[in-house]
Nucleic acid binder design. Structure first.
Lengths: 210, 210
DNA sequence: TCCCATAACTAAACACTGTTCATTTATTGA
DNA sequence: TCAATAAATGAACAGTGTTTAGTTATGGGA
């Protein structure tokens, strides 16, 4: 049944083409401005054809969102190399914000957009999203063990740190960091991370405090 | 010219009616699901009539957003009563998150939605939005003077703290706090604020650290 | 009181959107 | 070559924001 497999391949290639085209258009104009007809036009098929490969527009967004979670997870793993727990956590946050700012459309889809998460727990996305969250929790735990961090409920601390980097990323993406010139954003992010993590480091704190 | 004034009054009353109706519908169904026709139907006028009072749909959102900024600013001021700078800052953050969670549609409009902020600096909103931000900066400054806080660039710290509470609020509003049951949200928010502010307090830190 | 300029309002249309379905076109195994 | 299956589409539907030409109501001057 080689033919059948080839058919399957072509089918998934078509899905891939639609996804790629959609994402490119999203990157260009923002996803609220992209229509099924736009995507169809770009790949030179009729709008109806897209519905042979995706149930609806939401399924396209949804699939791209999952892609985003995979990408983020891969990106996050780069922070694991560092030995010092606090530095690792710092790098972790930096990597998160970097991902968000370099892939604002993905990030938007994943954490800022409302709509396609309807069922509160989208299990598929949670699975992979949770993997990232577990990574963070492990990191936090190791910081506590190394005593560079006050002992506290790990979930609370992890959620807090996540909120922090998400807050920074999403305010910048939504252009609410208007008190800073655009070219200083990297510096601000760095300083903000230092503010959060370094001030939790007793030695630095004592130093700062004379 | 009493008539002319009455006409003006009626005009602004009509604007008010449209805004109120729009906001009620938004609160009910979320603003992406509300159409001009919905609003028109509710107030029993034709859709075209709305365009006599507002340039377009964006102007309605925009006006409601400004209302939101006013509300937030008023709400924020309640935190000023406390004498202790750190407690005041804590209350400040608490009030911010409370506003966000109690007025999610306003908050969405103000800080999470994309679209109507096109011109990067919307001067009107900035004016009132900036007032809230200045309030925060003053608070931060006073914390530094009281030495409950490490000295650092005030803008960076203010932006950091804002990011923090915005991160918490927006993740909860977008239902990304799925690791916590809904009824525990208030507790989490409280603990998160403590994590951020108390761990910046040397005494508490030393206590925690034994 | 009548008349008419002005203001208030609306029906109908336009150009879009996501989505569906009957129909056509292409492909393939027998 | 032919019937069966798969792939693609044209045309429509119901919905959107917005515009405009046309209707209805109002108020002041004659």
């Amino acid at each position: 049944m080689g033919i059948k497999e080839r058919k399957e391949l072509e089918k998934s290639e078509m899905r891939g083409l639609i996804l790629k085209t959609a994402m490119n258009l999203f990157l260009d104009k923002g996803f609220e401005n992209i229509t099924i007809r736009n995507i169809a036009e770009k790949i030179e098929y009729s709008p109806a054809t897209i519905y042979l490969y995706f149930k609806n527009k939401d399924e396209i967004l949804h699939t791209l969102r999952r892609e985003g979670f995979e990408k983020l997870y891969e990106h996050q793993k780069t922070s694991l190399k560092l030995d010092d727990p606090l530095k690792r956590l710092h790098k972790h946050g930096e990597a998160y914000i970097q991902f968000a700012l370099e892939n604002p459309e993905y990030y938007d889809l994943m954490f800022m957009m409302r709509g396609p998460v309807k069922e509160r727990q989208d299990i598929n996305n949670c699975d992979i999203g949770l993997k990232s969250y577990e990574l963070l929790k492990t990191n936090v735990e190791e910081c506590m063990e190394a005593e560079v961090f006050p002992r506290a409920n790990i979930d609370v601390v992890a959620f807090s740190l996540w909120s922090y980097v998400h807050g920074i990323a999403s305010l910048i993406i939504r252009d609410r960091g208007y008190m800073f010139p655009l070219e200083k954003i990297n510096y601000i992010v760095e300083e903000a991370l230092n503010f959060m993590l370094v001030s939790n480091n007793k030695k630095k704190w004592d130093l700062n405090n004379k």
